[in-house]
Amino acid sequence: MRPHVALLLLPLALSACGTAEALSRIGRPPPMAPITDPTRVAGWRPVSMPMPGTQDAYASPNSLWRQGSRTFLRDQRAAAVGDIVTVLVSIADEAQLANNSDRTRSGSESMGIPQLLGLQTSYARVFPVPIDPSRLVEATSDSSTTGQGRIRRNETVTMRVAATVTQLLPNGNMVVDGRQQVRVNSELRDLTLAGVIRPQDIASDNTVRHDRLAEARITYGGRGTVSDVQTPRYGQQVLDAILPF
């Protein structure tokens, strides 16, 4: 098969795959993902972070206090791999940026050689039309550029997500990973988050704010009937990628 023919048939193949997948979901809502061990998901790998120097641990004889404890009673906050901590996601970002630029430049150049070693009398034999030696070269230029840009963004996401501690770092910080799915009718909403938290930032009710997560990765999206309507078709996406105008 010639390359250009294969290129033309590629959008049809992609469309057929998407159509078959859509037909297989007729009459059924989007399936929810099974509960799995986050460390066994393809692409997962342990987090490596800069660590402070090690400190020697010491024991306190004849004392009920245990080093690292926060209270004499049992602490219910997450502290080990497999524990669950609730992350409070409250994002209310707003940004507005406006920029205007205006540039204008004009120039004019003129040059003439009225007398050049007496050769000005020979101009008529060299050039087909009569010329004025005092106006041999004249050039003018005029340019103008105007630009205007504006960005306005407003995002609000408020949710509570239970995340699992997947790793303990040498300095005591914990790597958490959480996922939440909510299906309403035929629309599935998916929220995932990951990051590194300090034990000191976990409140007494075993919650931590999302802005306390280092290297935070928070995604919120969905799939289903509404998302399918809002997503451009494969053919339109291919044309948007290859058309130069």
Rank of each mutant, 00 (worst) to 15 (best):
A163Q: 03
G222L: 00
Q120E: 13
D190E: 01
E155V: 07
A92G: 15
A6D: 07
Q76F: 12
V196D: 00
L7Q: 09
P46F: 06
L64R: 13
V41W: 03
S144T: 11
L193S: 03
P133R: 05
T19A: 03
S48E: 10
S144Q: 09
Q67G: 14
L168H: 12
G178Y: 05
R45D: 11
T156W: 00
V165R: 03
T104G: 15
D102L: 13
P61C: 06
L191C: 05
R160T: 12
G112S: 02
E215T: 05
A139M: 08
Q76A: 15
A13V: 01
R74F: 10
V41L: 08
Y220A: 11
A139Y: 04
R212L: 05
D205A: 04
M174L: 12
I218H: 00
V89W: 02
R77G: 08
D190F: 02
T39I: 01
V161I: 07
N62P: 13
A216E: 04
S110A: 13
T207M: 06
A6C: 08
D228H: 07
L8G: 04
P133Y: 00
T145V: 10
G43H: 07
S186D: 12
T71L: 10
L168P: 11
S141K: 09
G172Q: 01
G27A: 03
S90K: 14
I26R: 11
R212Q: 09
S15W: 06
G149D: 05
A194N: 02
V176Y: 01
R77A: 12
T140G: 14
T225G: 09
T36A: 07
A216F: 02
I202W: 04
Q67K: 14
